[in-house]
């Protein structure tokens, strides 16, 4: 379980982590400034296992990986949004940051709600109001990457073909 942090629509990569902080690729360093302009209290008080609840087209903009790296570095468990921008979606999967598409959950969860997420089934439980929502379950290959902690770690011990086998 974790606390929900809510964000608006079209949250772009610069709002997730402004370009001026992209001089490092260290997750912990990046996490110190994640969402610093849109929600400065996030980086200061986020706890491991908290959940990001975003709007439509989350992560749009640049192909740079600093944005998902910064969120992963903050130890958020996952991101729930109605939809993700395409490159952010891939980057998040490849660095091992779980993402779930679930418009119903996003419409119903408010900031601070206590939320449980089962990543393998896609089930989301909002303890604050007792509601359950079903996100599309993550495909097996995405879970494999997430379990390995990202595609780079996966490839240290696997062949890329193993993703789909």
């Amino acid at each position: 379980m974790g606390k929900a942090w809510t964000f608006g629509e079209n949250m772009n990569t610069d709002e997730i982590i402004p370009g001026r902080y992209n001089i490092t690729i260290d997750p912990v360093e990046l996490a110190k400034n994640v969402f610093c302009e849109v929600k400065p209290e996030y980086a200061k008080t986020v706890k491991p296992g908290d959940v990001i609840v975003g709007g439509q087209n989350f992560g749009c903009g640049s192909s740079r990986e600093h944005a998902p790296i910064a969120i992963k570095g903050s130890q958020a468990k996952c991101i729930i949004a109605p939809s993700f921008a395409r490159i952010f979606f891939r980057n998040a999967i490849n660095i091992g940051l779980p993402i779930l598409e679930c418009p119903e959950a996003v419409a119903d969860i408010t900031e601070g709600d206590d939320v449980d997420v089962n990543l393998s089934t896609g089930e989301i439980f909002n303890r604050a109001n007792g509601h359950r929502y079903q996100a599309r379950a993550l495909p097996d290959f995405v879970l494999k990457i997430a379990e390995a902690g990202g595609i780079v770690n996966f490839l240290k011990t696997h062949d890329i073909q193993d993703l789909l086998n």
Partner: peptide
């Protein structure tokens, strides 16, 4: 298609992309 840098490093090694 555009991708992140990590996938480029992966493709250098594997020649493949999902």
């Amino acid at each position: 298609a555009g991708l992140g840098s990590t996938e480029i490093g992966v493709a250098w090694v594997t020649g493949k992309c999902w």
